[in-house]
């Protein structure tokens, strides 16, 4: 398959993830949609790595996976802390820091 097809799939996944971040009120699902966007970026990186025939893009993709794992850990910790304070798990209600 041409590299362009992979890039189209990557772009579609990214947009689905962006739509999810914008529309869903549940922070858990927002984290999942962020994962989708990061994975779309990963797919594009690996596709470009295949295009040039150098493995540097795959190294970049692995680093992105590490950053995503860190983001998930901290994000889920925040959600658990919110739940412990018995606040609503809803980003529309959690707006006290909005200024």
């Amino acid at each position: 398959m041409d590299i362009g097809w992979y890039l189209v799939v990557s772009a579609l996944i990214f947009c689905i993830g962006a739509a999810g971040v914008l529309t869903r009120p549940n922070p858990l699902v927002i984290l999942l949609c962020l994962e989708l966007m990061l994975n779309a970026a990963n797919l594009a990186l690996v596709a470009f790595s295949r295009m040039w025939g150098t493995a540097a893009g795959q190294v970049f993709a692995l680093i992105v996976m590490i950053v995503a794992a860190c983001e998930v850990t901290v994000g889920l910790g925040l959600i658990v802390a919110i739940y412990r304070r018995q606040l609503a798990i809803n980003v529309d209600d959690l707006n006290e820091l909005r200024g």
């Binding site: 362009g4 772009a11 579609l12 947009c15 962006a18 295949r50 295009m51 040039w52």
Partner: peptide, 28 residues
């Protein structure tokens, strides 16, 4: 939200179709 996502998708497709990268339309 969905309108924004659709706009980004269309824009990305235009960017890819109009790209001067020859490698995109090869197998690598």
């Amino acid at each position: 939200g969905p309108i924004f996502a659709l706009a980004v998708a269309i824009e990305l497709c235009i960017a890819m179709l109009g790209s001067a990268l020859e490698g995109i339309s090869s197998k690598g």
